[in-house]
Design a protein around this nucleic acid. Structure first.
Length: 395
DNA sequence: CGAATTTGACCTGCGC
DNA sequence: GCGCAGGTCAAATTCG
């Protein structure tokens, strides 16, 4: 039975056949046209999508910049308030305490806090001399060199601060000849000064323990590997790196995985940068330098070999720590968020360990500071693995 | 091809 | 003085 539908079916088949016939003639050209239209449409859609995404990213970036600037501004405000109150309280102190005041070390983000405006001016002078990209920052980000200017302007003190000792190491870079660190050390030894040789040759070290999945902690500096060794008692090799930001920079670091927990990376810094640092590098350098300074300004700790002293002093300002526990009156102030800190003076090198692996403050062990029991908590974290972030992230 | 990394040799300090 | 371990050097190798 041939119905209308049957006819129509036949008819459609016939149409298809006709179409096929026609395709046989210019088939390829039509297909190419169709494909072109298709591709064009897809490409347009992709471009539109990419544009939208680009817009979103731009907005996100500008938002991030705004947040960062406001945070920076806020930080300055708090910082200056702190300094004003300190200055007022210190004005009442005697002249003898002034010498101690000179030893005040403030290393927050590499900006000296004792006289922020003056230091900024000084740092500008310095930066202009160096000619680094830090010019654009408008603020001092060069911790070590700031300190140097400060020390250079100072007369010699009976009890040199730790900064002085650190800067003594850097003093080698001021020699006309450009020498590698090892040569510098030898030169200094030849020059003598038996008394201070120990403190100069045995550079203080700062170890940073952090949970880092990457092979190396991103601390904002450029490093060049110059050696690797298998240390006794640890199957993981220890890598030796040298700072390559400046050819004369004496800073070295050792990187080693913790044998007990392979996720923990132990980075040991030695020396002080003699060049301006990036923002992210400055945060780390400030913390480590301050830790070294603290260690060196505590002769009692250094004299007791092998003794470990853990320190923790919470501050009302999120993550800003005031170290004022030592026998001298100097105060050390720097960011050390959510971490524990221990100092030790072995026979070879005085060392400070900053332990960022502790998830909460409750896990921190206090050996020698029963008076400074830390009831508080911090909301700040150091993010070493972030390639961009200025290391200090406020939640 | 230059820069960075690897790796064995060498140096130095320290304990016995 | 000797051996060990940590640290550095520098030639060889790899990488971009």
């Amino acid at each position: 039975m041939e119905t209308a539908s049957g006819k129509s079916v036949h008819g459609s088949v016939a149409f298809d056949n006709e179409k096929k016939m026609s395709l046989d003639g210019g088939e390829e050209a039509v297909l190419v046209e169709l494909n072109k239209d298709n591709l064009l449409g897809r490409a347009k859609a992709k471009i539109t999508e990419a544009r939208e995404q680009n817009l979103r990213l731009k907005q996100l970036l500008s938002q991030l910049e705004k947040d960062y600037q406001s945070l920076q501004k806020h930080f300055y405000e708090i910082f200056e308030q702190e300094q004003e109150s300190k200055t007022l309280s210190r004005k009442t102190e005697t002249a003898s305490e002034d010498s101690d005041q000179q030893e005040l070390l403030c290393l927050c983000l590499g900006r000296s806090s004792s006289e922020p405006n003056n230091i900024r001016k000084k740092s500008n002078i310095l930066v202009n001399g160096v000619g680094d990209d830090m010019k654009t920052n408008g603020s001092s980000l060069s911790l070590g060199v700031d300190c140097k200017i400060e020390t250079a302007s100072k007369p010699t003190t009976k009890n040199p601060s730790s900064e002085d000792i650190v800067e003594d190491n850097k003093g080698a870079k001021l020699t006309p000849e450009i020498l590698p660190p090892s040569k510098i050390l030898k030169t200094k030894e030849v020059q003598g000064d038996e008394v201070s040789r120990d403190t100069q040759t045995k550079k203080p070290r700062v170890s940073v323990k952090a949970r880092v999945q990457t092979p190396m902690m991103n601390d904002g500096c450029q490093w060049r590997k110059y050696g690797q060794k298998i240390a006794k008692g640890n199957p993981c090799p220890r890598a030796y790196y040298r700072c390559t930001v400046s050819p004369t920079c004496p800073v070295r670091k050792q990187v080693q995985r913790c044998s007990e927990d392979l996720t923990i990376l132990i980075t040991t810094y030695e020396g002080t940068h003699n060049h301006p640092l990036s923002l992210s590098a400055t945060a780390m350098a400030s913390t480590t330098s301050a830790a070294v300074s603290m260690l060196q300004s505590c002769p009692s700790t250094s004299s007791r070999q092998g003794q470990v002293t853990s320190v923790f002093s919470p501050s009302p300002i999120g993550g800003l720590l005031n170290f004022s526990h030592f026998q001298d009156t100097s105060q050390h102030q720097f960011y050390l968020p959510n971490s524990s800190m221990s100092t030790s003076a072995s026979t070879s090198h005085p060392a400070v360990t900053l332990d960022f692996t502790a998830p909460t403050i409750n896990t921190i062990h206090f050996d020698n500071c029963s008076n400074t029991t830390p009831p508080g908590h911090f909301s700040t974290y150091l993010n070493f693995s972030s390639p961009y972030s200025p290391s200090l992230e406020h939640n």
